[in-house]
C-alpha cells in the first residue's frame, strides 16, 4: 500500500503529461519532425530497439574502459602524492586545471591525435579525463584521512613507512575511493557521450551517434528514442553504482 502511494503519483503525472502532449500534437497538427507524439516515439523506440541497445552497450563499454583507465592513472599518482608532499604540491594545480577544462574544448585535439579511423580511442580517453579527477581527489583525501590516534599508535609501535601505507593509509582511503569511483562512473558516461558528439563520427557507434544520425535525417522520434535509452542507461548505472557502494562499504566496516 505504501509502495503504491509513492509510485502512483509520479506515474499519474507522467501519464497526464504524455496524454496532453499526444492530444496537443494531434489537435494542433504539429509536424512530426518538430515534435513527434509520444506514440510515435514509442513506435520508433520499438522499431530501433536492437540497434539502440547495441549502441547503449558500446557507450557503456567505452565509459567502463574510461573509468578503468582513469583509475589506473589516478591511483599511482595519488599514491605518489601520499608519499611525497613535494609531488602533491606540484601536481595539485595541474589536476585542478584538467578538471576545469571543458571536455568539449579538448575533444577535437584528441580526435586528431587518435586518428579519424579510431574515434573510440579519443572518446575513451576523453571519458577517462573526465573520470580522473573524482578518483584522484577522493584517493588523495582518503590517503590522508586516517585517524590521528591510529597514526600515533603506528608511531608508538615503530611502524615502517611501507607498513604505514599498506596497513593504515590505503585501507583508510577505501571509502573515499568508493565514493570517487561512484561519482566518476556517472561522469564517464557523460564524458563519452559528449566526446562522441564532438567527434561527430559514426566510427564508435555509441548512443550519441544515434542521436546525431537521427538528427541529420530529421527523424525526431528516433532522436527522442535514443535520448530515452541514454537516460535509462544513466539512471540504471547510477542505481547500480549506489548498490555497489552500499555493498562494498558494508563489507569494509562489517555493518
Amino acid at each position: 500500500m505504501k509502495a503504491l502511494t509513492t509510485i502512483l503519483p509520479p506515474l499519474a503525472l507522467l501519464a497526464a503529461i504524455l496524454g496532453v502532449w499526444e492530444a496537443a500534437c494531434r489537435v494542433l497538427a504539429v509536424p512530426t519532425y518538430l515534435l513527434p507524439t509520444p506514440s510515435a516515439i514509442g513506435a520508433a523506440l520499438l522499431e530501433s530497439l536492437p540497434l539502440l541497445l547495441q549502441s547503449a552497450w558500446a557507450t557503456l563499454l567505452m565509459a567502463f574502459q574510461a573509468l578503468l583507465a582513469a583509475f589506473v592513472v589516478a591511483a599511482p599518482l595519488a599514491l605518489l602524492g601520499a608519499l611525497s608532499p613535494l609531488f602533491r604540491r606540484a601536481f595539485g594545480p595541474l589536476a585542478a586545471a584538467i578538471q576545469v577544462t571543458p571536455v568539449v574544448a579538448i575533444a577535437p585535439l584528441f580526435v586528431i591525435w587518435a586518428g579519424l579511423e579510431h574515434p573510440e580511442r579519443a572518446i575513451t580517453a576523453l571519458g577517462g579525463i573526465v573520470a580522473f579527477f573524482p578518483i584522484f581527489s577522493g584517493l588523495t583525501t582518503g590517503l590522508r584521512a586516517a585517524d590521528p590516534d591510529l597514526m600515533r599508535l603506528f608511531d608508538l609501535y615503530g611502524a615502517r613507512r611501507d607498513q604505514r601505507l599498506l596497513r593504515l593509509a590505503i585501507p583508510s582511503a577505501v571509502p573515499f575511493l568508493i565514493e570517487g569511483l561512484k561519482v566518476a562512473g556517472g561522469l564517464s558516461i557523460i564524458g563519452v557521450v559528449v566526446a562522441e558528439f564532438v567527434a561527430g563520427s559514426g566510427g564508435a557507434q555509441g548512443l550519441a551517434w544515434r542521436i546525431l544520425e537521427a538528427g541529420h535525417q530529421l527523424k525526431t522520434a528516433q532522436m527522442f528514442a535514443a535520448v530515452l535509452v541514454l537516460g535509462v542507461l544513466g539512471a540504471g548505472l547510477y542505481g547500480l553504482l549506489t548498490l555497489a557502494e552500499t555493498a562494498l562499504l558494508k563489507t569494509w566496516r562489517g555493518r
Binding site: D149, L153, R167, W252
Partner: peptide, 27 residues
Amino acid sequence: TSVVFQAPTLMPWANAAANVALPLELS
C-alpha cells in the same frame, strides 16, 4: 609501551583479532 585512548581507536576495516594482533605484526 602501550597506549589506550579515549576512543577505542580501532581499524574499522579489520576484525577484533586483527586489531589486537596489529602491534605484534608491526614489530
